[in-house]
Computed example of a mutant assay.
Amino acid sequence: MRYIGRFAPTPSGPLHLGSLVAALGSWLDARAAGGQWLLRIEDIDPPRCPPGASDEILRQLEAFGLTWDGDVRYQRTRGAAYQVALDSLVERGLAYACGCSRREWQSHGVYPGWCRQGSRHPERPQAWRLRTDLGPDPVTWHDRVFGPQRFDPKTQGDVVIRRKDGLWAYQLAVVVDDADQQVSDIVRGFDLLDNTPWQRQLQSMLGYAEPRYLHLPLVMGEDGQKLSKQNLAAPIPTRPEDARPLLHQALHLLDQQPPLALRDASIDTQLEHAVHHWTPAAIADNPRRDPVPPAF
């Protein structure tokens, strides 16, 4: 199988150390396999994407030497492809309109499928949901770090694949684009592992190939929370001279044990060593990494 990997950030703000670790792990896995590494900007939610954020992400990746193959793909241009996929699901009874509010069903934990036989509130704006009861059950796959995975769709609920405001939801967009770009390997953070069952169901329902998965441990802050844009994690630099020690730290967070002597080496030298010594099997199956100083 030809290796095609990808990094697909949401441009809701600049990259931080946690997203650097995810990008680096994905890039190393692709380069060590002699494969392609694609960059996709997941900008399907314009209210969350401030002007200039996408360009800053590109500058940050370039500062760390994480170059990509081909043109950058922007999901905001992909609405027609998502509509084709949704139409296919609806025509086969695999997706349905739903006017229920979160307040009405939140006591159930997951959406209980009230609108599967027809919307209970057709007078309201409608979301579109996936019928997870008609997909693979159970959903299983092998994660390259965390091993065999098994999920019961009933514990996940019928996920929204198009929102009430007309915007496309992440689950459908990511599956359609991964298939269109022939992505063979998805390397991303552990926080997305429990999204994989919905994506595996969509892949099956739409007749797409199933990629391999490798979920990476999350980087935690001193407060015990995952580093994230929502938690105002500090952005990584856009100058290569400032990136060297942080790249070395990111390799440690991937359990690659880079030599201390490489800490101040050039970006190219560090990446060349890292590609040559990339060992996914060394990544510990612990979903969290020790806290890092707030300066990062």
Rank of each mutant, 00 (worst) to 15 (best):
L254K: 09
E56S: 07
D191M: 08
G147W: 14
R48T: 10
D29F: 14
V174W: 00
I4M: 12
S54M: 12
W198Y: 11
Q149L: 07
P50W: 07
A281E: 11
R129V: 03
V159W: 01
R263T: 05
Q126S: 03
W37M: 01
L24T: 05
I161F: 06
Q83K: 03
Q106E: 05
A250R: 01
L192W: 04
W27M: 08
F296C: 06
P148A: 14
G109K: 15
A33Q: 05
V90Y: 00
Y96W: 14
A209F: 13
S19M: 08
Q117L: 12
W68V: 04
S266T: 15
Q225N: 05
Q171W: 08
Q182E: 11
Q257F: 14
A81T: 01
R188W: 06
R116Y: 07
L167Y: 10
G207A: 15
P245L: 02
R150N: 10
Y96K: 10
L134R: 15
W27D: 07
P112D: 02
V21T: 13
I236A: 06
L94R: 13
A97I: 03
E241Y: 05
D194F: 07
H215I: 09
D178N: 09
G35M: 13
H142G: 04
E91Y: 03
H248Y: 08
L172R: 01
Y208A: 14
V160N: 00
Q181W: 04
A53N: 03
L15Q: 09
L216Y: 04
W68D: 04
T269G: 02
P287C: 00
R200G: 07
L130Y: 13
S101A: 04
L66N: 05
E56V: 15
Q182L: 02
A233M: 06
G65L: 14
K226G: 02
P197E: 02
F146G: 08
H273E: 13
V72W: 12
T279L: 03
A85E: 06
V21M: 02
S107L: 13
F64S: 07
L38C: 12
F146M: 11
Q201Y: 03
D178C: 07
L61V: 14
H16E: 06
R131C: 07
A127S: 12
P211V: 15
L254T: 12
Y96C: 13
A274N: 00
P148D: 08
H142E: 07
R200F: 01
L202E: 04
R163C: 01
Q201F: 00
V160Y: 02
G157I: 04
W278A: 00
A95K: 05
Q203D: 00
R6I: 09
L202I: 12
Q75V: 11
L89F: 06
G99V: 14
R92Y: 03
L271D: 11
T196E: 10
G93F: 05
M205W: 13
P217L: 12
Q201C: 10
L206G: 10
L28M: 03
R212P: 06
V110K: 01
Y111M: 08
D69E: 01
A63W: 13
Y111D: 09
L247F: 00
L15H: 03
T238A: 02
